[in-house]
Amino acid sequence: MGLPKFISEALRAVARRPFTLMYPFERREPPEGYRGKQVFDLSKCINCGLCAMDCPAFAIEMVEIGGKKWPKLYMDRCVFCYQCAASCPKNVISSSKLYELAGTSRSNLVISPEPPAMEGGGA
């Protein structure tokens, strides 16, 4: 019968460590290539706007700073599909392992562009 089998399984589990972790005291390291918070390396950005065009969640807006348009990411809309990184011709967008993105304000969930200092002073 199956029932005694499950009892022996349950008894064995008593001796084992719990399967769950004591979050937030214990944290699991996400694997390599985990799709967490985005990192923008704007020194490579060519202001083409392909990331904003292909974003399925309309989470990227191109904002004008110093006469050029730069990507601004709203993480509260983002679905972390990384199509932006795939569309980017210059590999500006890379992933990080940061996944604890909950907050009390939506304004904390915006990655504003910080364009590199431009030669010639910009606008």
């Binding site: 399967f19 996400p30 694997p31 390599e32 290539g33 985990y34 799709r35 679905v79 972390f80 599909c81 990384y82 199509q83 795939a86 992933s95």
Partner: peptide
């Protein structure tokens, strides 16, 4: 959960995989 861990290591996310893309796979 074990399967979810494998999915996470292959696709980068434990549930919504975003793995199939037009023309092939993402990674």
């Amino acid at each position: 959960e074990l399967v979810m861990d494998v999915v996470e290591s292959i696709t980068g996310n434990r549930l919504i995989s975003a793995f199939n893309v037009l023309g092939g796979v993402a990674r």
